[in-house]
Design a protein around this nucleic acid. Structure first.
Lengths: 220, 220
DNA sequence: AACGGTATCCGTACTGGTACGGAGGTGAAA
DNA sequence: TTTCACCTCCGTACCAGTACGGATACCGTT
């Protein structure tokens, strides 16, 4: 087998529907720099073939497959061949799934309604180390990112300045004594602030306090 | 003043550069359903005018303004007029800023390089309660979302199953005793697991432990 | 002038977590 | 089989944090 030209992106295509595999191959045929060099109909087969063809740059995966889901497959690929970029090709896009794909190390998520231009653009971006998400996909994701932050902005029970200072130091694992010394106040005062923090954040212990603080981005 | 037709979206436009204000107005003139009914050159003025014109549906804000930043203004608007959607129009898009905009309750983020079609599309989407982010903006944001998750998958020092269980209960503010009872084990055992967790996460107290857990998405 | 909020301080009593240093049993891998 | 990782358990001692119930002082608003 001859080595692929350097400017060609070798692709792995995984989908359990032969029709779709053929469809995508046909779609990509005019794009000379994108070559599907292996295709598989399930995760196991994909992993086997990948072992024999590590030169693959981008793996295009269907999400809904029997036996092994696209997410699991993505995870497996990213673990064993970190240089292979994963592009998910799917029919639907709910928030949880897209988040899973991201967590599994996927670099892109394209809907099956995508045009030839969008698909090839996505492949090239992903191959170049960037990310690509179809407009709709990015939207659902960002929408779910935004709602909670918009809500929590409203109900913030406003810690006082001093309380925030104390909170920050607690978060840095300072003991009450440390805090007292740092701020030149008595340990009692620190304890009082601490108690007030618990009350205001309705938490029973530092545990809840830290969670509250992280959620509200009062600390990092 | 006559009430605007029901299918018209009344806009507020805020930018400290008159040239840009005019430019955008011109750009939107052909779009009959999008009408800039107020314009302001700073945040204070914007808030004053908004008080007199609460019918505004979408506020288009520049990000870099003297005296009050676009983010602060967005926050102020979302707090006082929650029904007004905020669309940020900006020259640049770094991750931190976009995240700030989201946190401030912004519904969209469009670059000033956007075409008439993109801008008006963005406004309509935002007015309809959706979100809109220019492709590039969404990309930077998502890229910063993805990288850490891909990295942390590698170096996870692997807490044992039991340790994870314990960790979850600690995070729920269970005391050692509570945990012992829940898992039908001795309090001593819980203490040991706890110690091992501290060691493994290199934290001195629950504080660090919880932060570790949240960061690594072991809990939430 | 009276009030509410914030920040500061104190003592006492108790409990829960922490440090330390042990030990035995299991199951899977070498 | 031996080794190792994991889960399990124990005691002792100590200290940090917690609950409670006070107190004073400053500041801005009413």
């Amino acid at each position: 087998m001859s080595a692929p030209a350097p400017d060609v992106i070798p692709l792995l295509l995984v989908d359990d529907h032969p029709v779709i595999v053929e469809g995508i191959k046909n779609m990509l045929r005019p794009e000379e720099d994108l070559q599907v060099i292996i295709q598989a109909h399930c995760g196991t087969q994909a992993l086997e073939l990948l072992a024999a063809h590590p030169e693959v740059r981008v793996a295009i995966l269907d999400l809904n497959m029997p036996e092994m889901s696209g997410v699991e497959l993505a995870q497996a690929i990213r673990t064993r061949w970190p240089q292979v970029r994963v592009l998910i090709l799917s029919m639907f896009h709910d928030h949880a799934t897209v988040a899973d794909v991201l967590a599994a190390g996927g670099s892109g998520y394209v809907l099956k309604t995508a045009s030839r231009a969008e698909l090839s653009n996505a492949i090239r971006r992903v191959a170049a180390g960037h990310t690509y998400f179809s407009q709709d996909v990015a939207d659902t994701l960002l929408q779910n990112l935004q709602i909670p932050s918009a809500l929590e902005a409203r109900q913030k029970p406003a810690l006082t300045g001093r309380e925030q200072e104390i909170l920050e130091l607690i978060a840095r694992e300072y003991s009450n004594q440390d805090i007292a010394e740092s701020l030149f106040i008595s340990e009692r005062t620190v304890e009082t602030h601490r108690r007030n923090l618990f009350t205001k954040t309705k938490s029973k212990s530092v545990v809840g306090l830290i969670q509250y603080a992280l959620r509200n981005k009062l600390i990092s």
